Amino acid sequence: MRGNAVEVFAAFLKLGLTSFGGPIAHLGYFREELVVRRRWLDDHAYVDLVALCQFLPGPTSSQVGFALGMMRAGWLGAFAAFLAFTLPSALILLAFALAAPAIGGPVGTGALHGLKIVAVAIVAQAVWGMAGNLCPDRERAAIAVAAVILLAFAPGGLGMLAAIALGAMAGLALGRGEARPTGGHVAVPVSRWMAVGVLVVFFALLVLLPLLAGQSPALAVVDRFYRAGALVFGGGHVVLPLLDAEVVQGGWVTHDAFLAGYGAAQAVPGPLFTFAAYLGAILAPGPNGVTGAGLALLAIFLPGFLVLVGVLPFWDRFRSGAAARSLMRGANAAVVGVLGAALYSPVFTSAVAGPRDFALALAGFVALTVGKAPPWLVVVLSAAGGVGLMLLG
């Protein structure tokens, strides 16, 4: 049964205000609200859609939401789902970015320091969990380690891209994927001609934006955030090293401000990609503020949505092939290495200045992995711990 964009917006606004815990938790919230309670689709179709979005680059939960909105109410429904799920956390992080310069004194400075430290715990948890899921054998563990070694000698965006590409090639050479029949069809109305056109736009922007970036500051912002969004495989946390390479190493944002915002992003509901709104608001020189936040936010989400629409008509045939599965296994293993390298630099080296900082980071990691504490609670407690460390001197 078809719905309308207003219904979709209301459903996803509720999810945008209450969906804490990261992409995997978001998918659970979506299933409970839209499959179990509202019955927009059945479990089989939902699992098929999730499999598609996990295979693609981009923010998995936002891609699933975009597709669910499209299935329910067409293109208007897709955009309604995106806006409603994204705006709450984006507005909170924008407000934090605008207020951060006014935060001072031992309490404010300590809280910001605690946010940098909690980023260590959260990224370490992501590496730990992803390594267990994506590197369960010696071959894929070796790919992850090779990615770390490569980035030790070739840090930055090109090194990350090379690590993922070489990981994919290694996965294909190892040939551990198995062909299997598909289980259902993702029923989203996109023709093959439209899909091909959208894929052309996706790759054209990836090639042309770097060539046009020098013509205006706004295009430079769009270029860097679009490239980061286009190369994210394996989960939202992987955007951290990509954004660091684009805006921190590019001299637009300081390490301290970057990590403080990343820590704050863990305490809000909704997609982690809204971290881009915070970064866009504090860019130097500019555009920044509300304009920079809007440009960064749209640019980082756009490639994931373009590639999603572009592969929909071809997905059932492609995902059943052994070669495709082998490529993605190798690429995902390399992604673990990319995130592991980022855990050391810039996350650990920029946040941990001594044994007290390390103890607070370790306590946060244990709370997340062993205590199963919600990320927002660990963020709040780490900010309080940072204040305590500052007062102790």
Results as ranks from 00 to 15, higher is better:
Gly114Asp: 09
Leu279Thr: 06
Leu377Tyr: 01
Ser382Gln: 02
Gly294Met: 12
Phe318Thr: 13
Ala341Ser: 13
Gly393Phe: 04
Thr109Gly: 12
Arg176Gly: 06
Pro313Asp: 09
Ala213Ser: 11
Leu91Phe: 04
Gly214Ser: 02
Met194Lys: 08
Ala173Cys: 10
Leu34His: 00
Ala119Arg: 11
Gly129Cys: 13
Gly197Gln: 02
Leu339Cys: 10
Gly321Ile: 00
Leu158Thr: 15
Ala10Phe: 14
Arg319Asp: 09
Val221Phe: 00
Trp252Ala: 15
Gly289Val: 10
Ala25Val: 04
Leu327Phe: 13
Leu283Phe: 05
Ala351Thr: 01
Leu161Asp: 08
Val370Asp: 09
Phe225Val: 13
Leu172Asp: 04
Ala299Lys: 12
Ala367Phe: 06
Leu174Lys: 04
Ala147Met: 13
Leu368His: 08
Val198Pro: 10
Leu158Gly: 10
Leu68Asp: 04
Asp256Gln: 15
Leu158Met: 15
Ala359Pro: 05
Leu17Pro: 04
Gly104Asp: 13
Asp316Tyr: 00
Arg140Val: 02
Val309Asn: 08
Leu27Ser: 05
Ala213Gln: 09
Leu259Asp: 03
Gly250Ser: 06
Leu93Asn: 08
Gly110Ile: 01
Ser382His: 01
Val47Ile: 13
Pro287Gln: 11
Ala84Glu: 06
Gly105Cys: 12
Leu93Gly: 07
Ser320Asp: 14
Leu377Gln: 05
Gly74Gln: 05
Leu240Asp: 09
Ala10Tyr: 12
Arg72Trp: 12
Leu212Ala: 11
Ser326Pro: 13
Ala163His: 04
Pro136Cys: 11
Asp256Phe: 14
Leu150Asn: 01
Arg329Tyr: 12
Gly280Ala: 08
Ala322Arg: 08
Thr60His: 01
Val347Thr: 08
Val387Ser: 10
Ala359Gln: 02
Ala170Glu: 01
Ala119Lys: 12
Ala111Ser: 05
Val201Glu: 03
Ala333His: 07
Ala204His: 08
Thr349Ser: 15
Ser382Tyr: 09
Lys14Met: 12
Val336Ser: 10
Val370Met: 14
Ala342Glu: 01
Pro287Lys: 01
Ala260Ile: 09
Gly28Ile: 13
Ala281Gly: 09
Asp316Pro: 00
Ala80Asp: 04
Ala126Tyr: 03
Ala245Lys: 12
Gly321Cys: 01
Ala187Glu: 14
Gly104Gln: 14
Phe358Leu: 15
Gly270Ala: 03
Arg227Ser: 03
Cys53Glu: 02
Val50Lys: 04
Phe96Leu: 14
Ala333Met: 12
Pro23Ser: 06
Thr369Ala: 14
Pro189Val: 07
Ala324Gln: 03
Val188Arg: 10
Leu209Asn: 06
Arg319Lys: 15
Val196Leu: 15
Val64Trp: 02
Phe20Cys: 06
Pro88Glu: 07
Gln266Pro: 07
Val36Gly: 00
Val336Tyr: 08
Val190His: 02
Arg138Val: 14
Ala384Leu: 15
Pro303Phe: 09
Ala218Pro: 13
Gly184Pro: 11
Ala361Arg: 10
Leu91Glu: 06
Lys14Cys: 11
Leu94Trp: 04
Glu246Gln: 15
Gln125Cys: 11
Phe305Thr: 12
Pro210Met: 06
Val64Glu: 03
Val35Gln: 06
Val200Gly: 10
Phe85Gln: 05
Ile300Tyr: 03
Val335Arg: 00
Pro375Leu: 01
Val127Ile: 00
His185Phe: 11
Ala228Lys: 14
Lys372Gly: 09
Ala73Ile: 03
Pro355His: 02
Ala179Arg: 11
